[in-house]
């Protein structure tokens, strides 16, 4: 593990040596302890529910509607997809700061190929996805194989990726007639009035959850995050798994990029990059839930929904933008503090 990543990792809730994962044995009788442990595990979930109730009461006509629920879930979908890849590397105590750029690259590639080069949409889509995986593999190779610091490398890689994106798109918005089959992926909402994008996000999350929580590779990944040297000495294939982690980030970023392209039917520079920080915020927020101090997919999903609900709710209260920013930031800080607290007492 790289030095830089290690240093920064000490600031995050995931990595304390005392971070207790699952373990019914730690839940001792005693009502105070019980309340404490429940509030730690489900604090974020409870906060999310309370927030939803509050917004429903405050704006019964706009917030408490089915269409608003559908909108919130649809808007949360890209971040849900990105959170799966990000969680995979964070579990192994790696960082990836390049996925925002990768999302943009996939978006730009697909649209530019269809519009500028006249490539049919299916191969264009596949190239977009492959580009994401390629970026991830390049990150993984540089970091896992050559031992570079993940923080710096992925930051540098994001600059490279933006360069490639601009070379492909000339840094111009691209708005043109796209094949209906392509745009329908992102724009149709066949089941329960929820968009395809949301259902794809659900599938990606389910796969991510299964892989991390149920498979041998997932077990190995958590072992690497817990103690990479002990994991190596136990025969865990560290290089391969870290490589897979970065590839997963690239792949999920590309899926998000392709879906955003299809949804908007256009390309604009910087759309994907806007997802970088909120996704990090959501995943760290989620690490306070369920298994305090550990990155999990269910936690990440709760984190994403939490932020989306705040966003939508606050904008419906017709607050000034600066108030929204202040409140959003304060809630995030409070949530991260809560998870630090959980890590210490857990």
């Amino acid at each position: 593990m790289s030095e830089v990543a290690n240093v920064s990792a000490t600031d995050v809730p995931s990595v304390g040596p005392m971070g207790a994962p699952d373990g019914p044995s730690s839940a001792r009788p005693g009502s105070r302890e019980l309340i404490q442990s429940v509030s730690l595990r489900y604090g974020v979930v409870i906060a999310l529910v309370l927030m939803i109730v509050a917004f429903c009461v405050a704006r019964p006509d706009s917030f408490a509607t089915v269409s608003n629920l559908q909108a919130i879930l649809a808007q949360a979908a890209p971040a849900m997809i990105l959170a799966v890849g990000l969680t995979t590397v964070l579990v192994m105590q790696d960082f990836d700061l390049s996925f925002g750029a990768t999302t943009n690259l996939a978006m730009g590639l697909v649209i530019a190929m269809i519009v500028k080069s006249g490539v049919p949409w299916v191969p264009a889509l596949l190239v977009g996805l492959a580009a994401g995986v390629a970026v991830g593999l390049a990150n993984g190779f540089l970091i896992a194989r050559l031992g570079a610091a993940s923080f710096i490398i992925t930051l540098a890689m994001s600059t490279v990726v933006v360069g490639v994106e601009f070379a492909v798109t000339d840094q111009q918005n691209i708005i043109a007639e796209l094949p209906a089959a392509f745009t329908s992926i992102g724009q149709n909402a066949p089941i329960l009035g929820l968009s395809n994008v949301f259902w794809i996000a659900v599938i990606v999350c389910a796969i991510g959850w299964f892989a991390l929580d149920k498979t041998e590779s997932g077990r190995f990944m958590y072992a690497i995050g817990g103690n990479s040297e002990a994991a190596r000495l136990a025969g865990v294939p560290i290089l391969r798994l870290r490589l897979i982690g970065f590839a997963a980030v690239g792949f999920t970023a590309a899926i998000a990029g392709v879906l955003l392209a299809s949804q908007s039917g256009s390309y604009a520079p910087g759309v994907g990059s806007a997802y970088l920080l909120p996704t990090y915020a959501a995943v760290f927020l989620g690490s306070a839930a369920f298994r305090p101090g550990q990155f999990t997919i269910p936690g990440a999903i709760v984190g994403v929904l939490f932020l989306q609900v705040i966003n939508t709710g606050l904008s419906m209260l017709n607050l000034d933008t600066f108030v929204i920013n202040l409140v959003q930031g304060a809630i995030l800080i409070a949530a991260v503090l809560l998870s630090r607290l959980g890590q210490r007492t857990a």
Binding site: G19, P21, R219, Y222, N227, E229, A230, A231
Partner: peptide, 21 residues
Amino acid sequence: RRHGLILEQSIRQNMTLPAIR
């Protein structure tokens, strides 16, 4: 502690790690 165990994981997870297959 540094080379033989993953301290934050359970006894079961530590014991089965290399032979998980």
